[in-house]
Design a binder for these strands. Sequence first.
RNA 1: GGUUCCGUAGCUCAGCUGGAUAGAGCAACUGCCUUCUAAGCAGUAGGUCUUUGGUUCGAAUCCAAACGGAAUCACCA
Length: 592
Amino acid sequence: MSAIQKELSQLIQKGLKELFSLSVEEIILQETKKEFEGQYTLVVFPFSKEAKMAPPMLANQLGEYLKSNCDLVKSIQVVQGFLNISLKNEVWTKILQELSFQKSFDLATKSEKVLIEYSSPNTNKPLHLGHLRNNFLGYSVAQILKSAGYDVVKTNLVNDRGIHICKSMLAYQLFGNNETPETSGLKGDHLVGKYYVAFDKAYKKEIDTLLLTGLDEESAKKEAPILKQAQEMLLKWEQGDKEVVALWETMNNWVFEGFAASYKVMGVDFDKTYRESNTYLLGKELVQEGLNSGVFFQKEDGSVWIDLTDEGLDQKLVLRKDGTSVYITQDMGTAQLKYEDFKASQSVYVVGNEQDYHFEVLFHILKKLNKPFSNGNYHLSYGMVDLPSGKMKSREGTVVDADDLMAEMVQTAKDRTLELGKIEGFSEKESNELFNDLGLGALKYFLLKVDPKKRMLFNPEESIDFQGNTGPFIQYTHARICSIQRKAQEQNITQEPIGNFDQLENCELELIFLLNDYSNKIDESAKNFAPSVIANYAFELAKQFNKFYNELSILNEEDGKKKNFRLILADQTRKTIQHSISLLGIKAPIRM
RNA sequence: GGUUCCGUAGCUCAGCUGGAUAGAGCAACUGCCUUCUAAGCAGUAGGUCUUUGGUUCGAAUCCAAACGGAAUCACCA
C-alpha cells in the first residue's frame, strides 16, 4: 500500500468508527473506474447492514466526513454503494515530487534469504523454447524478489548424468565417427543433441524389428538391445569406468560450452551451478539413512521405495534395483547440499508443471526424513509452451530451438529497424546492441507477459510482434522520453522542485497514479512469483505516457511551471519504465 | 480409470483475496506526421465470460455437476 492509500484508509477507519461505531480491520481501496470521477473507490455495501443504513446514504455521510476532516480530498461522488474519492491536485503533484526524490525503487529489506533454482538443463540436448520460458522466468523472479527486499541466491542444477545422457553417449559411440564441434561446425550442445535424436531413431527401429518377431510392444521396449546397452553404460558410469567417464566428460564439456554461449545471449546468470553428478551420491546416502530410519523400504529385487499412500499419493521408487539412482534421488541430495551452502529460509524451484507430481513427492520425502530444509520449499510450476501442433518433443525433433529463435528475433529487429530508418548516426556496435536489445526484449516480453502458471501457445508461423502490447513498444516509449531529455539538455533546461503546483490535466494525474502504484506492483509480483504483473504494469505505464505525450506538449509548453512539472513527470516515467523492464531482464535503449 | 490444471472478442492474453456498463494487443475498418521519435495517438466494429444449478444485496471471480482440452499416474528426467 502506498503512503497515500494508508493515510486515506486510516481516515476512513476513523470515520466509520466515529459516525457509525464500526470497527473495520482492513479498508480495501480500489482504483476508480475510468467512467466515474475520482481515483480511489470505497465499496460501502459491506458496512451498510451493520450500520443499519442504506448504502448511498452511508457513502454520502462518510464522504462528507472525509471532506471536512482532511485536506487531501477534493471531492466525492456517490453512485449507489460506491464512494468515489478525488484527491486534490496538489496531493498528486506532491506525490510525484516525493517519488522523484526517492533514491531507489527497492522495497524495504526483509532480511530473508531466498534460493531460486532455475534453468536446470539436461546435458543431452540443446535448449529450446520451453527452456527460454524457464530461464527468463527464473531470472526475472530473482530480480523481482531482490527488488522486493529479499536476499536472493540464483542456482542452476545441471542434469549431467543419468540414462538419458548415456543414450546420446552411446549413439555417439555407435554412429559418431569421432566428430567434434570443430570438425562438424556444430555448437557443442547441438552436436550432442543430434546423437540423442539418433539414439531414439535406432531404438525405434529395434523395437519395430522385435515386434516382427512376435514380441508384444511392452517387452519390445524393454528388450531392445540398444536400450540395454545404455543401461549397462549407466552402470559402468556409476562404477567409474574410465572409458565411459572420459567420453562423458568430453561430451559434457561440449554441451557446457554451448550452454554458456546461449546463457550469454539470454542475459541470465547464476551465483552457483550444481551438477547432479556431484549430488547424486549424497542422495544415495539419504536413501540409506531413510532406509535405516524406516522412512523407505526395500523390495525383494533390491529396489528402494517410499510409501506415500497415506498422503494420497502412491509408492515411489527412490533407488533402482541395480543400485543406480533416479531423478528424485539426486534431488534429495541437491536439496541437502543447497541447504548446507546457503541456509536459505525459502527455496524456489522453477520447473514446468509436468513435474507437479515429482515435487509433491520430493517435498513429502524431505518432510518424512525430517530435514531442516523440508520447510519453505516452493515449486514455481509454470505452464508448457505448446506449438499449434501440440507439445514439443526433443526426441522427435519437433522443437523450436532456443539459439535459432533468439537469432531470428535479433534479425527481425534489425530488418524492422532498417525499414523504419531509425539508426542514423549509430555506430555499428551501437546498431548491433540495439538489434539485440530489441529482439531479446520482444522475446522476453512475449514469454513473460503471460501468467507463469498458464500454458501458452507459440506459433512459429507468426512472428512475435514489435507493435502494441510488446517489449519494443515499451522500449520505444523509454527512448522517446530520453530523446525529449536530450533536447531539454540542449536547451539548457534544468529541473526545479515542483513546489506548490496544481495545474493538472487528467492524463497527467493518471500517469502519476500509475507511477505511485509501482511499489504495490513489485510487492504483488513478488508475492505471486509472477513477472507478468510487472510486464502488464510496464505496458500500462508506457501506454499512459504515450497518451500524455500526444495530448500535451512538454518542451513547447510556454508556462514555465507546467513545463518543469512535465519534465519531472517524464523523467519519473522514464526511470520507472527502465526499472520495471530491468526486472524482466529487458534492456531500455536510449535511442531507437 | 485416479489425481491435478485449464475453458473470457476471429487470434493471443488481462481481469479472478466476490462489486459499477467485462478490458488490452493483434487482425479488419476510419482519421492524425512542415509541431518534443507514427515501433505512436484517437476512433469504429467485435462478448449468452463453455453449459447448468447453488451461495450472495451483488458472481467472469466462490461451491457443485456436466461438456471440452491438457498434464501426470515410468526401475525417463
